[in-house]
């Protein structure tokens, strides 16, 4: 008899556990216009100008869900290194059994973390997202080639970072969302390239005004996929 009760209790607990674990997922989907981003594709800005992307990596940190501007969930794993060409890294699990209307996150790494020494996981400096000559995380990295960049091998490299005033390039993003099983956040590179001129601007490798301006263009390219 008592065994049966224990068994029933366990089933009940398991149910509760499963319920509390029910989750939806926030998925970053990088694109070039309406096309899904891939490393092998050639994209066209116009008839003659083409772009290939070799690397798109960025940090999403301190994710938070809000309801009526009140925090209802804070990500217990605050740092995610998103790599456009590594499917596994694109999704972040969030709970679905709570109601929320807004998503908040940082694009990049906050200043406190930047001055806190060596860290592991996605923050490990072996991930290639840390400046070695001047301490600080690279918040956002976009690399590729284009016939417009008159550089060696037509390369362009945008490494955006900087955590110190007046060159803090961290961007805080607020997006209105409705809860569903997969919330897709589109990052459209076409929108970024339409706002810059690769003939004149093809390298950003240090903190400064340029990195800050470019970071703003990056968050403007984010939208919720309907």
């Amino acid at each position: 008899m008592s065994k049966r009760i224990v068994y029933m209790m366990m089933c009940l607990l398991k149910g509760v556990f499963l319920f509390s674990q029910s989750a939806s997922c926030i998925k970053f989907s990088p694109s070039f216009g309406s096309e899904k981003l891939s490393a092998d594709s050639v994209y066209y800005l116009n008839v003659s100008d083409s772009i290939q992307i070799t690397s798109l990596r960025f940090y999403v940190s301190n994710m938070e869900l809000l309801d009526n501007n009140k925090s209802v969930w804070i990500d217990s794993n605050p740092f995610h290194l998103i790599d456009a060409f590594n499917e596994k890294t694109l999704s972040v699990i969030v709970p679905s059994n709570i109601s929320y209307s807004k998503l908040k996150f940082n694009l990049g790494i906050d200043s406190t973390t930047n001055v806190s020494g060596a860290m592991g996981g996605d923050l490990d400096p072996t991930k290639g997202m840390y400046w070695t000559w001047q301490s600080g995380y690279i918040n956002f990295k976009l690399e590729g080639t284009s016939n417009i960049s008159k550089t060696r091998h037509n390369e362009f490299q945008f490494h955006l970072g900087g955590y110190q005033h007046p060159f803090n390039s961290l961007q805080t993003v607020f997006i209105e969302i409705t809860s569903k099983s997969t919330i897709e956040i589109n990052i459209d590179l076409l929108q970024i390239f339409q706002q810059i001129n690769l003939a004149q601007q093809h390298h950003i490798m240090s903190p400064g005004q340029e990195a800050m301006d470019f970071s703003e263009k990056v968050i403007q390219s984010l939208s919720i996929k309907k």
Binding site: G117, A118, Y130, T132
Partner: peptide, 16 residues
């Protein structure tokens, strides 16, 4: 003062 933490110091000479 390019480096902000002792832990990160070694990265500079390693990479230079």
């Amino acid at each position: 003062g390019a480096i902000n933490h002792l832990d990160m110091q070694a990265l500079a000479p390693i990479s230079h």
